[in-house]
Computed example of a mutant assay.
Amino acid sequence: MTLLTFRFAPSPNGDLHLGHAYSALLNQKLANTSDGRLLLRIEDIDTTRCTPQFEAGVLADLKWLGLGWEEPLRRQSEHFAEYKAVLDRLIREELVYPAFMSRGEIRAFITDCEKRGRDWPRDPDGVPLYPPTDKALPMRERKRRIDDNQPFAWRLDVGAALAHVGKDLAWAEFSDETLSATRSVGARPRDWGDVIVARRDIPTSYHLAVVMDDALQGVSHVVRGQDLFSATGVQRLLQELLGLPQPAYFHHRLILGPDGRKLSKSLGDSGLAALRGAGASPDDIRRMVGL
């Protein structure tokens, strides 16, 4: 019988807060009740914002909470060569393209379109979709700009990717924390436009790294926050393109701050280190997050 495998995957770019605690403890609870495995993955592809000091704080907070995980933990920054191999495959298959527009150029393009009466589409997070200009560049011009060392990112050609897959996509979503029933959710990767899958200096992005890591680590159940629900559509597309197994998903409720907004690592009053320093116990944290 295959063991169910869960994972908690924080980014060490700040202190953990109550929302992270809830997600970590829920993954641990589900792994324990199913006699499964719990893995810890450090998602540190952003080598500028992610630091060893923040990672040490993350590990200290998780150990204080009583979280246990299988060793060794996986650090994404140690696996760039693996991500690059997959990126090179997407480049060869012409499913990605180099995108050169700066943020200012994107804003100017969209402003011009809106001045002419055209509403520009936005992704589920409210960010304007990337304009189609670079996708139409001839191969010779793309190569010239890359050789000239112009900054760029690799973006997924979502239209070409969906044509390559050739079928509608969906995923199995659990209905509650008991994981007793699932429903099928239709994936909508077009809602995100041509997302970034890698940068010139970092051969991956969140979307590409997470689907590869979940497959390589044998993750069967992805339990994470509701804020990532829509992004699952992009990840399902990448799984199909790369022939990766599809985990089951549960996007859990978010722990909100006093103002009703999603917690942020910049909100010190909900940080685990601050709460511990104020005298809170691990049991207090469990009560605060409803576990």
Rank of each mutant, 00 (worst) to 15 (best):
M1W: 14
T2E: 10
F6P: 00
G14S: 03
A24S: 10
K29W: 12
N32A: 13
T33H: 08
D35T: 02
G36V: 10
I42E: 10
E43Q: 09
T47W: 08
Q53W: 08
K63Y: 03
K63I: 11
L65F: 07
E70M: 09
E71Y: 12
E71P: 01
P72M: 10
R74G: 04
E78H: 14
A81I: 04
E82Q: 14
E82C: 03
D88C: 00
D88M: 00
R92D: 15
E94K: 15
L95A: 04
M101I: 07
S102G: 05
I106V: 15
F109E: 03
F109Y: 15
G117E: 10
W120M: 01
D123S: 03
D134I: 02
D134L: 03
D134S: 07
L137Y: 09
I146Y: 06
N149Q: 14
Q150D: 11
A153G: 07
A153K: 00
L162R: 10
L169V: 06
D176M: 02
T178W: 09
V185F: 02
R188P: 00
R190E: 11
S205V: 07
A209V: 08
D214N: 01
L216S: 05
H221K: 04
V223P: 01
A231H: 14
T232C: 10
L244H: 01
Q246G: 00
R253G: 11
R253D: 14
P258M: 01
K262V: 13
K265H: 07
L267E: 15
G268M: 08
G279W: 13
L291V: 05
